[in-house]
Structure formats: C-alpha cells, structure tokens
C-alpha cells in the first residue's frame, strides 16, 4: 500500500520534472519552430476550418462561422448539374495523358545523362535542362501565343511553306491538351530529372565495374543496375502524381484558355476559380474543392497501399 502511493507520487513528480526539464532544454527549439508553426496555422489549418462553408450558404455579413447551414445542397447542385461530367473528364484526361506522356521522360533523361562519359557535356546539359523551369507561366503562355499565332507564328510559317493551311492552334479544342502537355514537358522534364539523377549518382561505382568485368554492356547495366535503384523514387513520385489526378494547374489552364478551346480547357480548377472568385459562389465552389480534396486524399492512400502490397516500397 505504502509502496504504491510512494510510487504514484514519484511518478507524478517525474512527469512534472520531465516536462520542466524538456521545456528548459527545448524552449529555444520551440522558438525556432514558431514562425513555421504560425505560418501553417494561419495559411493552411485555418482555411481547413473554413471548409465548413461548403455546408453553409456563405453570406459576407455572417462570415464563415455564422452563415446558415444548408447540409449537402451545394454537393447535390454540382452533381446534378450538366457540367460536372465534362469538368471531371477534362481534368482527368488532361492529367492522365500528361502522366503517360510526361512521366517517363525525366527518367530517360537521368539514365542517358548518367551514361555519358564526358563530364563537361554532362554538367553543361544538366545546367541547360533546368533553365525552362525558371520561366514563368505567363511568359510561357506568351511564347506559345507568339509561336502558334495563325498569321505570323513560326509554326504556321512552317506549315504554309510546306503548302499546308495554317491552324489557329489556341482556338481549337483538339489542340489544347497536346499544347498544355508538351509545354509542361518542355518546362519541367529536365527539372523533374533532378531526383533521379541524384539517385543514380549515389550508386556505388564498384557495381558498374563488376558488371563490366562480367561482360555487361551499357543497356544491361541500365536494366540491372540503374532501373532497380530508381524504383523507390519512381514509386514515390507515381503515388504523389496519382493523388494529383484531379488537381489542376489553374494558373496555366487559365492562361491557355480561349473561348475557342473551352470544350477541353474547362477543368475543375478553372471552374472553381471563375465561379467562385469571379461569380461569388463561394459555398458552391468550396463544396467542389472539398470533393476534390477528399478524392485526392483517398486516392493517394489507396495507391500507396496498393504499391506497398506489390513491391514493399511506398511513400509512407
């Protein structure tokens, strides 16, 4: 009996002491963390609290927390509307085509670069392929409008010189996806190869030497050394990308959208932007945003579990 009391008393004391010593040692760590913690609180977590307007009818006078509840009205409106299928299809197709066309290219670049013998050429190429990443979306769009101009763009000059008719690329629905995806590859493929290059640089050179002695050629080295060592990163990026299949680069889609290509360029992100901020339908578009968020979240967890079952490496 006595022993138990003594022990519990001792425990309490240690817990208090434990916290106190930690606070004494660690308070400076918390101070260093403070700006980041505040930032994420105000810019990320507070808006999550604001998601509740998806279930309310937002009125500026009542604000986020006082507007009347309407339950699932906005969700029903959206999924009952004529547009939602087109919006989902456009967004999904744009991302799936983009993933199929764009995902392998950074891997290819990294592997090819890793197999070059000249150090100078390698570092020059590495420097150059990152450059497009430093160009803004606005400038990219400006360049595309210039190059694809029906009257004096270089592409149409080329077409007409070959005796073809010129094409108004930016005003045709069927051209939106190719243009969007190809410019994306141009701008990001080099940049996205960084992670793969880093992984390949980390491979033990003895592995290659041993392979050479065993008589392996370069293709075999790629097949049996390079690719296996890239699998963890490929998996990680694939999982992250699958979580983004309904996401959209709203800024870019907005800049590439014209009245002519709206059939394919109308993606969810743009719709939320134009109806929400342009049209003032805050609650309705917040509901759409919430759907996307939840779907992405579930997808990322599903794909991650699937991948973990298949090959044992996963994101988390």
């Amino acid at each position: 009996m006595n022993a138990r009391i003594r022990r519990s008393g001792a425990n309490k004391k240690t817990l208090g002491q434990f916290l106190l010593t930690h606070l004494k040692n660690d308070w400076q760590i918390y101070v260093l963390l403070l700006p980041a913690i505040l930032y994420f609180f105000f810019v990320h977590y507070l808006p999550m609290y604001g998601i509740q307007i998806a279930f309310r009818d937002y009125k500026a006078v009542y604000g986020i927390t006082e507007s009347p509840w309407v339950g699932l009205k906005h969700f029903r409106n959206f999924f009952g509307s004529y547009y939602w299928k087109r919006l989902f299809a456009n967004t999904l197709l744009l991302n799936i085509y983009g993933l199929i066309a764009g995902f392998p290219i950074p891997i290819l670049i990294a592997i090819l670069l890793n197999q070059t013998n000249s150090k100078k050429f390698k570092s020059f190429t590495q420097t150059v392929i990152y450059v497009p990443h430093f160009i803004s979306t606005v400038v990219l769009a400006g360049m595309i409008y210039i190059f694809l101009s029906p009257t004096n763009g270089i592409i149409n000059h080329l077409l007409t010189s070959m005796g073809r008719n010129s094409i108004y690329f930016m005003a045709e629905s069927r051209w939106f996806r190719p243009i969007y995806i190809i410019t994306g590859i141009w701008q990001n493929a080099g940049w996205d190869s960084i992670l793969y290059i880093a992984a390949l640089t980390g491979i033990d050179p003895q592995l290659y030497e041993a392979a050479t002695i065993d008589g392996a050629n370069k293709l075999q080295k790629i097949r049996y050394i390079d690719l296996p060592s890239l699998v963890p990163i490929i998996t990680m990026l694939l999982v992250l990308n699958c979580g983004q299949l309904l996401g959209s680069n709203t800024e870019k889609a907005l800049l590439f959208q014209t009245p002519g290509n709206i059939d394919t360029s109308d993606v969810l992100g743009v719709y939320v932007y134009t109806m929400g901020l342009g049209g003032g339908q805050f609650s309705y578009t917040a509901a759409i945003g919430l759907c996307l968020n939840v779907i992405s979240f579930i997808m990322i967890i599903l794909v991650n579990t699937l991948v973990r079952r298949m090959n044992g490496s996963s994101l988390f």
């Binding site: 990320h44 604001g50 998601i51 998806a54 937002y58 986020i64 929400g276 945003g289 968020n293």
Partner: peptide
C-alpha cells in the same frame, strides 16, 4: 503538423475567405 498540409488543404475558396477575414 507540417507534412499533413502536403496531402490535405483548405482549397482555393476557404483559403481566400480566411485570408480576407484576416
């Protein structure tokens, strides 16, 4: 607390309204 924000966020509209309220 940091990493969670990579996988879930408030979305455009709630973020906009929160920033406006601030």
């Amino acid at each position: 607390y940091f990493v969670f924000t990579m996988f879930f966020n408030g979305g455009l509209i709630p973020t906009f309204l929160t920033m406006r309220d601030l």
